[in-house]
Simulated scan of single mutants.
Amino acid sequence: MTTTTSYTKKPFASSILLWVRTDQPRQTGMDYWKGPHSKIISPTPGFDEYRQIHLAETNPGLWPATPGVETTIPVDRRIDGVAEVTFQSALSPLLGRKQTRLAYKDEINVFRRTLLYAGPPNSTRWYDVAGPGEKTGARALVYLRRREGVGTRPFRKFVTDELVPALAKTGVLTELRTQVFMPWNKKLWDTPDVAHDNPADQRFHASLMLGFADASALRAFFDSDGVKKLSGPLSAVASAAHAYELSDALTYVKGGKILPHYER
């Protein structure tokens, strides 16, 4: 299997973290997002890819306990899903403003809190880690919080030059995508009637999407000595590593085209 850390793409992307309403069954909200809400979002001009990341309802945190790092996901901030948007260019968000306004109005039907994280161009990277014919059967999404006193540049350098090569060299990943975020700004996604509270000590600064052949490979990875060894260097730059298990990853737009049916 390849252990190269060459990237296949450096797209312009953003992620919207989502919490479904609690006045109805969680699955009702997840199904609405998967169905009616996706039909509003998918036709947005300028999309290269639109993927819904459905996070498992039970998610205490997959990352192994690490001194000085919050690896247990707080129940009151546990994310339900993430809208992963990849644009055709840095100007694409301007093309989709009309459609985006329709999504704004629909958020109240399904979500209670939404937070947008974006990065500058070239800060998102998709890496080529899968062997020939390998498919992804399970995924984990890891959010990292930069340790106070650590600068953006050293943090980004650690993610790109140390963490990514170490993850790739494990030889078990079938997917590896990284995002390093700009400072969070509420004005980028200040939608009506939905909460956007995001205290400074709860914000994230990077994410990792990790793909595996199946759920057993995912669990073996997080139980491995390799991940434990990564935790030492990670603790020097990060104060939190929230590793979520996914229940589904659904792609609605791919290569700039709306798919007739979502792909897993």
Rank of each mutant, 00 (worst) to 15 (best):
G149Y: 06
K9T: 10
L173M: 13
L102Q: 13
D161H: 04
G255R: 10
K186Q: 12
A65V: 07
S247A: 11
L218P: 03
S239K: 07
L230Y: 00
H37V: 01
P183Y: 00
Y50C: 09
A238I: 04
E263S: 15
A206E: 05
T8V: 13
P199Y: 02
T170R: 08
I79A: 04
G61H: 07
E245T: 07
Y244T: 03
E263Q: 14
D48H: 10
G255H: 09
Y143L: 13
Y262R: 12
E49D: 11
S15H: 15
F111Y: 14
E134Q: 13
D197S: 12
R113Q: 06
F221E: 00
V20T: 10
T174W: 15
D214M: 04
K98R: 13
Q202W: 12
E245A: 12
V159M: 02
T72N: 09
F181R: 00
L62A: 09
D201V: 11
V69S: 11
F158R: 00
A138T: 10
D76G: 03
S235G: 08
T2A: 12
G211I: 07
V82A: 06
I53P: 05
I73N: 05
T44A: 13
A168P: 03
P64D: 08
F158I: 00
A103P: 09
G131C: 08
S247M: 13
A166D: 02
K228H: 14
S235E: 12
V20R: 07
K135N: 14
R78S: 08
G81P: 06
Q52S: 10
R264V: 08
H261G: 13
S38A: 15
A195F: 10
T136A: 06
P60N: 01
V20G: 06
T170F: 04
M1N: 14
P121R: 05
Y262C: 14
R264L: 08
P165W: 00
F12C: 09
K34V: 02
I40P: 15
Y127N: 02
A213P: 06
A236C: 06
T8F: 02
V180I: 05
P93G: 04
P11Y: 10
Q24N: 11
K254I: 04
N122D: 12
E84M: 11
I53S: 04
E84N: 14
A118E: 12
K105Y: 14
V253Y: 01
G149A: 05
A166T: 03
K135W: 12
S6D: 15
A220D: 15
S231N: 08
T72S: 11
E263Y: 13
L218D: 12
L141A: 05
F212P: 09
L18M: 15
V142G: 03
F221Y: 07
P36R: 03
V82H: 06
P154S: 01
M1Y: 13
V237G: 00
N198K: 09
F155H: 01
A238T: 00
M182F: 09
G137A: 11
L246K: 10
V227P: 00
G96S: 11
T178Y: 11
T5Y: 14
Y244N: 02
V69K: 06
S123E: 02
W189P: 08
K257C: 07
Y252S: 13
L176E: 01
R219Q: 04
Y252W: 11
